[in-house]
Design a protein around this nucleic acid. Structure first.
Lengths: 215, 215
DNA sequence: TTTCGCTTCAAACGGGCGTTTGAATTTCAA
DNA sequence: TTGAAATTCAAACGCCCGTTTGAAGCGAAA
């Protein structure tokens, strides 16, 4: 495998192609998930040849790992949410902030939003690539939900309860992020402008905090 | 199309094949969803020829519609949950009963459980077949969540709020039903026996009713 | 300018999918 | 028993997928 050697003396063209492929792959995987996103569509958006994916990344999975690496890096740089910042807030505000940040993809289409959508896809049906990836080094973003949940649970809560609650909280915003396009159409017809986003944050935060009982 | 004529004078063998295909399709679609379930696997489980699906049902989509019809019929016969029974309960008990019935597939593998799993799949990424099917006649099961939710919301709640809340409640149990196998493995390792089911119902009902705030 | 290694490219490969085909088989009324 | 209709069957078709191939293009060192 001379890929590493190639990278060391990479020409500008090489880096251009690699970057274009990673960028295109990020948007395609965010839209369709790993299994649903095709190499042909990625290379088409990157105006690159189909074989380029295999040449530069060893395959579709290698390209995806590169995207996941970039996402992990972004989250480690707290581009999404600072764990320490969370601790400085009250439990209620921490929950609210978590939901708000996670629902941002509904109105913004920046880089972090695409990463969040990819994670939302993986929370539905994890690809083998992703499973192997998180088995090696669990992404920080997954620990944020647990961090928020623990603020509410008693110290002596069982591991099962913590797992239930963490999975539960993590699912709250993911559904809306993943299915934004579908929810925009009948029979739901939900339009997500910034006001609707705030109302959704309100609703989810209220339900998450106090449930339907005090709605 | 002489399919209708054929059906009218169908031999016993015809009905046997049709029934075997529908039964096999129900289990395959419950396991893998519509897109993920292949005709080859269905016909293999039914010990039928691949072409039989097209001959008897006009295609994979026709077979799926047949399964959806059977599911709709089962739910209309209140095999899952009686809408009037719900109204007889307190809001809290109605919610609890809704969650319990919806989580039953975690420990039972009967016919209704398979139907529920199919709906859980469709709640993630609806197939075009399903979308067209529910556009024609929305299945009763989808109205149950709204029925439960309305008990908690004020009379003058906006349509958007009702939609938010209904989608929210419907998602609560679906995640666990859909991903039962995955959650049974590391890193979650959740074992769903009947006791764990009760604890999960407890947790979800508590969160849904009173949120994390009073956990 | 020639040469050599990196990169691009169009084309094809192999495999899974739903579907179609046409012949063989079974069924059942005449 | 015969003959036509209904059903089954193995095989192939066409499509999309990720990947491989080998030649062509390109840039920089000799």
């Amino acid at each position: 495998m001379s890929n590493l050697d190639q990278a060391r003396v990479a020409s500008r063209s090489t880096e251009t192609t690699r970057a274009a492929l990673i960028k295109a792959a990020t948007s395609v995987f965010a839209e369709y998930g790993y299994d649903g996103g095709s190499v042909r569509l990625i290379t088409q958006r990157a105006t690159a040849n189909q074989a380029a994916v295999n040449y530069h990344f060893g395959g579709k999975d290698g390209l995806y790992r590169e995207v996941l690496n970039a996402a992990t890096r972004a989250f480690e740089e707290n581009a999404f949410l600072d764990a320490e910042e969370l601790d400085g807030l009250s439990p209620e505000d921490a929950l609210r902030r978590y939901l708000h940040q996670f629902l941002l993809p509904l109105v913004k289409r920046d880089r972090v939003s695409r990463y969040l959508r990819i994670f939302a896809w993986e929370s539905v049906r994890p690809s083998v690539v992703f499973s192997a990836f998180v088995a090696h080094s669990p992404p920080r973003i997954f620990l944020l939900a647990e961090r928020v949940v623990r603020r509410f649970l008693p110290q002596d809560a069982s591991a099962e309860t913590v797992t239930f609650a963490t999975l539960w909280l993590a699912q709250q915003p993911m559904f809306f992020v993943r299915d934004a396009e579908r929810l925009a159409q009948p029979p739901f017809s939900l339009k997500f402008d910034e006001d609707a986003l705030e109302r959704l944050v309100d609703t989810l935060a209220r339900f998450s905090l106090r449930g339907l009982g005090n709605a």
